[in-house]
Design a protein around this nucleic acid. Structure first.
Lengths: 246, 246
DNA sequence: GAGTGGTCTAGACCACGAA
DNA sequence: TCGTGGTCTAGACCACTCA
């Protein structure tokens, strides 16, 4: 039975436009890993024939997924599953930019990796049971050799089982995708200005009480589940957080 | 001569899709005040006939303008020019939200209004000549009676001639639109964590050196010209800046 | 019921990239 | 030269609003 027939058969209950249903079907394939990052999707015409709708309807679904940065469309080549390459992360997920000079990635040094029961904040942020296991990664990130960000990541152990310290790369999201089949689709950040504690200040090589930007990020997978909590303390003497309102 | 004929006549030089040209035409009418905020646009069919393209092409242009929050489309009613009502500002341009409780507007108290030659920062931010006149508005904004934001606005005097202290409302952007015909289309914010100076701390009723979130906003009009610079110092003990990454 | 925007279709042609 | 996505058109029908 085609999608259109399904809709027409029961128009009263939970009606939604065809292209939205097509979008859900395609999204589910991304979630299920039928199409992995970097791979080429079938052409619009093939998808339309397979799903049983017109090319225009498939196009509208694909366009929306592309607008959400989940797909990349290239004229003459085809439609691809978006990858978490450096450039994408840099512009979509990394908002701290130097006051002067180019936007670029900081180097990372892992300080320690521990596994522990989730505290109250973590279980709330990650929507996991109280005291469920979390992997905590603490790392220091620097630009031009100057410590800039002290970062504490909390990952649900259930999702990222077997994550080893040795394999933690600078770009974590591409590891999530390649090793665990998890695509980070979007994130929510809450920012505050705080005074650094003695320990945090020492790690960043500044004086206790130095003002820092505290970023509390929760990153969501394709299916909307929170899969990462990231607490960052950023020095903003020579950098700033860039937010475009439109 | 219709748009399509124009394009076909000279396809080599500066080709752009028809719907983009239509979009430019419509945008120009917004800039020129042909259609003011809140007013009803002609129907898609009327616009298509007038401009000389198909309804689908007009639709694509209208959809993009709606996606940029410049128009509001309502099924069964028509397409309207977006207004800077409280709700829109609250969600599009006001990112500081209480940690607990509902997102809401702070009350404002104007501390002083002065006119002075622009300093280097202002002339750069507003793209005006060095020492051109700017209106500076300093105000204190509070939630539930607690001072939260100390704000300094810089407006080019040329654009906002005759702005009087008595007429400064809490919602400035609707005044910009109604009195000066200027629509704020988008803004760029740069955030830093700073320690409050003695003066600023006193204005906010906190101790000198208290960490605060410093937001440097440049707001752009429909035509892309910067028309407002806003420097905010925000206390983030019980509130945070919310940023959605997607 | 008339008019609006929203969806869906079918088909034509264009611009682009790669073989 | 071929296949891809991008644009444009024309027309049908649907859902919503309001008189």
């Amino acid at each position: 039975m085609t999608l259109k027939q399904k809709r027409d058969a029961a128009p009263a209950i939970g009606f939604s436009p065809l292209y939205q249903q097509v979008k859900s079907v395609l999204l589910q394939r991304l979630v299920d890993g039928v199409w992995v990052p970097g791979s080429l999707l079938p052409s619009e015409i093939q998808l339309a024939a397979e799903i049983g709708v017109s090319q225009g309807t498939v196009r509208k679904a694909l366009d929306e997924l592309a607008a959400e940065n989940l797909l990349v469309r290239r004229q003459g080549r085809g439609t691809f599953v978006a990858e978490h390459d450096e450039r994408r992360i840099l512009f979509q997920f990394f908002k701290l930019v130097p006051d002067h000079g180019e936007r670029r990635f900081p180097e990372s040094a892992v300080l320690n990796v521990t596994v522990a029961p989730a505290d109250a904040e973590e279980s709330a942020a990650l929507a996991i049971e109280p005291a469920a296991g979390v992997i905590r990664i603490r790392r220091l990130r620097a630009l031009d050799g100057r410590p800039l960000i002290l970062e504490t990541l909390s990952l649900p152990q259930k999702v990222f089982a077997g994550l080893d310290r040795a394999e933690i790369p600078n770009n974590l999201y591409s590891l999530f995708a390649s090793r665990y089949g998890i695509t980070i689709a979007r994130a929510r950040e809450r920012l505050k200005a705080v005074a650094l504690s003695a320990d945090d200040a020492a790690a960043l090589s500044v004086a206790t009480g130095t003002p820092a930007l505290r970023i509390d990020r929760i990153a969501l997978a394709l299916d909307g589940m929170p899969v990462e909590r990231r607490l960052s303390l950023c020095l903003t003497e020579e950098a700033h957080y860039l937010s475009d309102l439109r």
